[in-house]
Structure formats: C-alpha cells, structure tokens
Amino acid sequence: MSFNPHLLFGCLCAGLIVIAFIVLARRIITLKPRRQPPSPATFVDKPHPVLGTYREFDDGHWWARITSERLGYELSLSCKVAGPTEAQIERWREIEARLPGLLRQTPPPPDDDGWGHKFEHFDTASIQASLVIMNENGSFTVIMDTPYSGDYMLSPIMDVSPDWQCKVDWTI
C-alpha cells in the first residue's frame, strides 16, 4: 500500500485548519461580553417627621407618598438629590403654599389629542398634582391629574423655574 504525499499533506492541513477554527471560536465565545439585565433599583424605607415614611434609593434620590393637609389630597413628592434635607422640606412648604395658584395657570388642552378624542369638561379648579419632582437648583416639575378627561390621552405637565416661571405642556 502506497501513500500519496499530496493527499496526506492536504488532510493534515485541513485538520489543522479545523482545530484552529475550533480554538478561535471558543476564544471568541469566551471573550464576548454577556449582557446582564440592569439591576433593579434598591431602596430603604425611612421614617421622617414631616413626610412620614419615605424611600431613599441607592442613587441618593428620595420619594414619598404624602397627604397634604393644605391641599386636601394625597400626592407623591420626589427629589433628584439626596435628602430629605431641611432646605428641601422648606422648599416643599413653599411649593405646597403656591401650588393651587400654579395649577390654575394650566391652559386648556388642545381640541384633539391626536387620536380623535376631545376633553369632556376642562376646569382648572379640579386639577390636582399627582407628583412633584424637586430639583437641586430649586426648579420643579408637576405632573397633574385632570378629572373629566374621559378617553383624552394628553395630560398637563408643568415645569416651574426657581423664580416661579411656569411652562405647561400637554403630553402623553
């Protein structure tokens, strides 16, 4: 039995190429970063003399569900920086005092929400704040609830500057 040297050389090269591909493929697979789902936000509930219980999140911001005696309803209060500090609570008291007047500045909604729905009955006296988000610079955002909106898809969001200038957008 005779061996063909060209066939033997071809088989040897083909075998080395297959082994090289296997090694390279394993290396690529082990080097490929695996996508991890983002870790859920963690928080700790803490007591506060004014807020009751508030949640302090791992990134430092805090959130509380409070009942405002001055406003007469429940709403959420949040701050994008660590706290709650005395300055933040004082700022909240200022906001709380002026909030009814600010909410009355809400302009009427657009006639059509983009889906063919119309607002049933718009009354600024019925608008309530559902969430107030305070920023470090003294500005804040108010997300509002509007009763009598029916199927209307837009809601007013108010941005208030540190000097009480308001900008309201009707948005989804």
Rank of each mutant, 00 (worst) to 15 (best):
S76T: 13
C11K: 15
V160E: 00
N4F: 13
E120R: 11
S78A: 15
T53D: 09
A97I: 00
M144E: 06
P47S: 04
K167D: 10
G10Y: 04
P147F: 09
G15L: 04
Q105P: 00
Y73D: 09
R91H: 14
Y152T: 11
I143V: 14
H121C: 05
G116M: 07
R104W: 00
W62S: 05
R35W: 12
R91S: 13
D163H: 14
C166M: 14
R98V: 06
W63F: 09
G116Q: 03
Y152S: 05
C166E: 12
D163C: 07
L31K: 09
V18W: 11
D169T: 07
P100I: 08
F140S: 00
S68N: 03
L103W: 03
K167Q: 10
T67W: 12
D123S: 13
S130W: 02
M158Y: 01
S139I: 14
P38C: 03
S2K: 14
D169A: 07
T171P: 00
S155H: 07
C79E: 05
D169L: 09
D145C: 07
G60I: 06
R65W: 00
L24K: 09
D111A: 12
A82Y: 09
R65Q: 11
G114L: 11
H61S: 07
Q88A: 13
R26E: 10
E86W: 02
A41K: 11
L24M: 07
R65D: 08
Y148F: 14
D45C: 01
L77C: 13
L103Q: 03
R91C: 09
L24Y: 15
D163R: 11
H61N: 15
P49T: 08
N4A: 01
A82Q: 13
D163I: 10
T42V: 09
F21P: 06
S2T: 12
T85L: 12
H48V: 10
G60W: 15
S126P: 00
V168R: 09
L16Y: 00
I127F: 12
L103H: 02
G15E: 06
T85F: 07
S161W: 06
L7V: 15
L31I: 03
A41G: 03
F122Y: 12
V23C: 05
A129Y: 04
R26C: 13
C13K: 06
S161H: 08
P147K: 08
Y54R: 04
C11D: 09
R27F: 15
P84K: 03
W92L: 14
Q88R: 07
A82F: 04
P107C: 07
D58G: 12
S155V: 05
I157M: 04
L8E: 02
W62F: 11
L102I: 15
S126C: 09
L8H: 10
E74T: 13
T42C: 11
A14H: 01
R34M: 12
N135H: 14
P47M: 13
P37N: 03
D112Q: 02
M1G: 15
L31W: 06
M144N: 11
G83T: 11
G138K: 01
R35H: 05
L71C: 13
A125M: 05
S2I: 09
R26Q: 11
P49E: 15
L131C: 02
A129F: 00
I133Y: 00
F119P: 11
V44N: 05
K80E: 05
V23H: 03
